[in-house]
Design a protein around this nucleic acid. Structure first.
Length: 155
DNA sequence: AGCAGGTTTAGCG
DNA sequence: CGCTAAACCTGCT
């Protein structure tokens, strides 16, 4: 199998984003704080889509990604999360209820295991009172929400 | 079996 | 209103 990764700089987040592909399919995304030696590198189509997203364009990602190694439950949560529209937010409990009355914490756990933020908009899932948590850092989450909120208003 | 995690809700001061 | 405590559910050791 072939592995490759692209890197883009997300100005809105003030950090780099590393995108990893396995067999030309998206396998993981991770945030890298501005470090030296990082150079942007764009080889896959999806990388450009993601770049446009960070520039504030409202685009949906429907590119193929592989989460088959995750548990059934986790996949369910991720899929459900993917249904949340641009600029909208949901809560852990709401999502839990949506899937079938399970624990909100379990949902949080599933999102924490989410290998690909953004594509699976885990940042749109917040706690009932306030912002929740975020594996990659709440700061990132907040900025993503701000980005989407400003664009959604300008609809 | 036990523990921890991106929560929630109820109870108390 | 803000804080603590107990309850929910899944994944990992």
């Amino acid at each position: 199998m072939t592995n490759s990764n692209d890197i883009i700089f997300a100005q809105a987040l003030d950090c780099y984003v590393e995108i990893e592909y396995t067999n030309k399919k998206l396998s993981s995304i991770r945030f890298v704080k501005s470090g030296e030696g990082l150079k942007e590198r764009k080889t896959q189509d999806f990388t450009f889509e993601l770049e446009r997203y960070f520039q504030g364009e409202k685009i949906g990602f429907s590119c193929g990604f592989d989460i088959s190694h995750l548990s059934q439950f986790t996949q369910k949560v991720l899929v459900e999360t993917g249904k949340i529209g641009y600029g909208k937010t949901s809560t852990y409990s709401q999502l839990a209820k949506n899937i079938g009355g399970l624990g909100a914490r379990a949902v949080g756990g599933a999102l924490a295991r989410n290998p690909i933020p953004i594509v699976i908009p885990c940042h749109r899932v917040v706690a009932k009172n306030g912002i929740g948590g975020y594996s990659a850092g709440v700061g990132i989450k907040t900025r993503l929400l701000e980005l989407e909120k400003s664009k959604a208003n300008n609809l």
